Amino acid sequence: MQRISGRNSILKKNAIFLILIPSFIYLIIFFIYPIFLSFKYSFTNLSLYDINKYSFIGFTNYVDLFKSDLFLKSIYITIIFLVVSAIIGQMFLGSILAYLLTLTHKYFKTVVTTIILIAWATPQVTAGIMWYSTLSYIPEGTINVILKNMGFHPIDFFSIHNAIYSIIIANIWIGLGFSVLIFLGGIQSIDPSIIKASYIDGAKPFRRFFSIIFPLLKTNIITDLLLITLFTLGTFTLIYVLTAGGPAGSTELLTIYQYETGFSLFSLGLANAIGVIIIIIALVLSLIYLRFIKVS
């Protein structure tokens, strides 16, 4: 009997391994290998003019990038976009909205959650066109038509000073549903007796959330932060449809700068170096999140 049970356990382990093989192959072909190539080409002068001829140039691409004011400005814009859009707009507001939904009637919660998830599921090209038609200055978009009919002057939401706020709002609108979904699951998994005890102690709703519920959502917080950071750092389509990085580079995230470097300047080696830097930023932020959660 022991031999039979031992064989069964070995067969189960082998079956699990065999089931995971397609996933490993997929990861290697579409994730690990492209990242390896990106690292490799970032140390070359690969160009779209002739992709078959390139040579190793060491850290020249990285040195040139950090000497470029445009690249440093792009990093600054990306950090602002990440902090306001992802950390504050999606994670923080998403957790509060999820908590407020748990206080409402289940039918209302279902309707609101569905609407939010529809926004999250909307393709970024569609969302970009929708937001552009809403915020456009010339021709006048929906909001400016309303403002004009109310006697106010139209607002150029895509001016050099306002464009960054417009893309932040659009990105929050798209990503909020994901965070709400994660935090709804987390809040509903909290022991009801803890919530009831806070009611007995007379804790107000927001006091209850910040002092009791939010600290119990560490796992959900780190999961949400990691994923929305990766999503936000990789945002390209929405920004390109809305502003294409303009005006005057005021919304030129690292992804937009990478695209322009690769397909306008034809410098694939430099573009790959930018991609590597984006990966490094994502890894560093992930480690910071994990460390912060561990310490807190």
Rank of each mutant, 00 (worst) to 15 (best):
S159L: 01
I25R: 12
Q188M: 10
P205K: 09
Q2R: 15
I4N: 13
S179I: 01
Q90E: 14
T255F: 00
N14D: 04
T235H: 04
I172S: 01
N162P: 00
I77W: 07
L270P: 02
L176T: 04
G89I: 04
H161D: 12
T223K: 10
P247I: 01
I274W: 02
I174F: 03
L48W: 03
L97S: 13
A282T: 08
L285G: 04
A163W: 12
L72N: 10
L65P: 13
G249R: 08
V63Y: 13
T237M: 02
L270H: 06
N144L: 12
Y199N: 14
S55N: 09
V241N: 02
V241A: 01
I51E: 12
G269Y: 03
T237V: 05
T60Y: 11
G58C: 00
K106W: 15
R3T: 04
I168N: 11
I25S: 13
Y137W: 11
I212H: 10
S38E: 14
V83F: 13
A203W: 00
F183N: 06
F30R: 12
S136I: 03
F108N: 06
N149T: 07
I32R: 15
M150K: 08
Y26M: 10
I25Y: 14
Y107L: 12
F43M: 15
R207Q: 15
D50E: 15
P192S: 09
